[in-house]
Design a protein around this nucleic acid. Structure first.
Lengths: 110, 110
DNA sequence: AGACATGCCTTGTCTTGTTATGTATTGATG
DNA sequence: CATCAATACATAACAAGACAAGGCATGTCT
């Protein structure tokens, strides 16, 4: 798929996946892949910087924890992250509506 | 709106608007605004480079023409542009489906 | 030992949207 | 006539962010 489309959606998708409960990078990538039926293959070069960005913005909190004999960096949403997710989802819906208004060939009123 | 969402969609939107018949930059911006009900405010700094890009890729052809006492640069789709538009629209639909699969909270099968 | 999956991270590169600016014409207003 | 707004095209500097490729480390399986 065209990775450009992902621009601006990565944060929303990440927050959504993490909103189901604390999880970590590797698992997030797998979840996104599964939930989009193999469509969203987020690469590490996008994933980790995005996670750090969201943590800097205080939308995520992280903590290291051992599981299965491995150290993993878990992330969970902050209250601000939850609010940001809601806002981003709304924005996404508006964007889709706007795009369909143009792509649908109609005048956007439909 | 978050301009990042627009990344990668500008080309598709432009091709779609132009597919209705030869038109020019200024009018394209107005059409996008109207058809998205005021949502897509594409600025000149995005619009003109995008048109040039699409012409370089042979998806568009341009020709100058006078109308209302003004010189305007009209664009129309090439056959390749028409094929590209169809492909991009399909990709967009898949992207939306994938995103809804994640945002919907379901497993994407719904 | 070697291969592979798991797991985190960073650097360099490229694309692309935004802001700001420049140029020119037409029509309306003072 | 001068000025301003709308029309119309274009480019340069800047910033954001996705990707490829690379590095590093551990656990498991053969």
């Amino acid at each position: 798929m065209d990775s450009r489309l992902l621009s601006g959606m990565v944060d929303t998708l990440l927050l959504e996946v993490i909103s189901d409960g604390a999880t970590y990078g590797y698992e997030i990538a797998q979840t996104m892949l599964a939930r989009s039926r193999g469509y969203f293959e987020i690469t590490e070069g996008s994933l980790y910087p995005a996670l750090h960005r969201l943590e800097r913005q205080k939308y995520l909190e992280s903590f290291w924890q051992e599981a299965d004999g491995r150290e993993r960096k878990y992330y969970r949403l902050t209250p601000a992250g939850r609010r940001a997710l809601a806002a981003k989802k709304k924005e996404w819906q508006q964007f889709v509506t706007g795009a369909q208004g143009i792509l649908g060939g109609a005048d956007g009123v439909a």
